[in-house]
């Protein structure tokens, strides 16, 4: 069953990629190939990073509603970026190669999120509603701090931050791709190599110990991967609120198996198809009247509400 599903999704993904590259191709191929090709690669990298981060986070937090975005990971990244613009000055940050900016912000992101979310997740699994509450509070805190900093920086620096604080699928930070793509590949390969351990970690701390897994180490490594993947996707397109929830819920819906060896690739393919297909529709059919992020957040937000209401009824 998963083999068939995987084959179908891979086919759909290949078709969508071909369509994205060829529909409405008016310019010469030597322009279109690199132009659309890099954009396509960036969209796929973001899709895979977001879906993998979401699956990993849901595994270690023991629920299927929360995502890194809902817990405030993206907001934290934007805050760190804003903080460094404030501390160093926008011109310094803008002068740095985008790759350097990304490396600095990304490594700070990994450290801070391990400190903040580590204590929340590692010691004891909290119940779902306390986690949601914590996430909402943290995300709001990060956003408020960001907007506070934005208010006190000078207007030129503000413009720089402004761009980074919203999801932007039309204007991806292509420069970062050279480092973002290999990092994502590395994180995805690591996640794949621990797929059986993730299955066990999903059963909770005590059962993991009983089955001979060290949950503390497993949670820590997973959290590290989540921080890296969120940094990558946020650096490329900005915060994507409900994309992860949308695509992973969809993957769980079409996939009967709970195993990560099935869930990780299916979620990644669905995520990439959603992004590339959605962007194709927005660019070629709707002529960029609506940003893709608005549509994804609308549908994803509805999925989030439905899931919460369902878990309340149980």
């Amino acid at each position: 069953m998963p083999t068939k599903l995987l084959a179908g999704l891979s086919l759909a993904f290949a078709l969508i990629c071909v369509a994205y590259m060829t529909v409405d191709a008016k310019a010469g191929w030597d322009f279109i190939l690199p132009f659309r090709g890099t954009k396509l690669l960036a969209l796929v990298v973001v899709g895979v990073a977001v879906s993998t981060a979401t699956v990993l986070f849901q595994t270690i937090s023991g629920n299927q509603i929360l995502t890194p975005s809902i817990m405030g990971f993206d907001a934290l990244y934007v805050l760190i970026l804003t903080g460094s613009v404030y501390a160093l000055g926008g011109l310094v940050v803008a002068d740095l190669a985008p790759i350097k900016t990304f490396l600095i912000t990304g490594s700070m992101m990994v450290v801070v999120s391990l400190l903040l979310f580590g204590s929340l997740l590692l010691d004891n699994r909290q119940d779902l509603f306390r986690m949601i509450l914590t996430g909402v509070i943290l995300a709001t805190l990060f956003r408020s701090l960001t907007s506070f900093l934005q208010r006190i920086v000078d207007p030129n620096e503000f413009a720089f931050i402004q761009v980074a604080s919203y999801a932007r699928f039309n204007d991806l930070s292509i420069d970062t791709l050279a480092i973002a793509a290999p990092l994502t590949a590395l994180a995805v390969v690591s996640a794949w190599s621990m797929r059986f351990r993730l299955d066990v970690l999903m059963l909770g701390r005590n059962i993991s110990i009983g089955l001979g897994e060290n949950p503390h180490r497993g949670y820590l490594v997973t959290l590290l991967l989540v921080a890296v993947l969120v940094s990558v996707s946020t650096a490329l397109v900005g915060p994507v609120a409900f994309l992860g929830l949308l695509v992973v819920s969809l993957a769980r819906f079409v996939l009967p198996s709970p195993y990560h060896s099935h869930l990780l690739p299916v979620a990644a393919l669905i995520s990439a198809i959603t992004l590339v297909g959605g962007q194709l529709l927005m660019e070629r059919v709707f002529r960029l009247v609506t940003p893709l992020s608005v549509v994804i957040d609308l549908v994803g937000g509805l999925v989030f509400l439905t899931l919460i209401l369902k878990s309340l009824r149980r």
Partner: peptide, 11 residues
């Protein structure tokens, strides 16, 4: 070991 409280992974 079977711990006292066991979380149930949906599905």
């Amino acid at each position: 070991i079977l711990p006292q409280t066991t979380e149930v992974t949906p599905r």
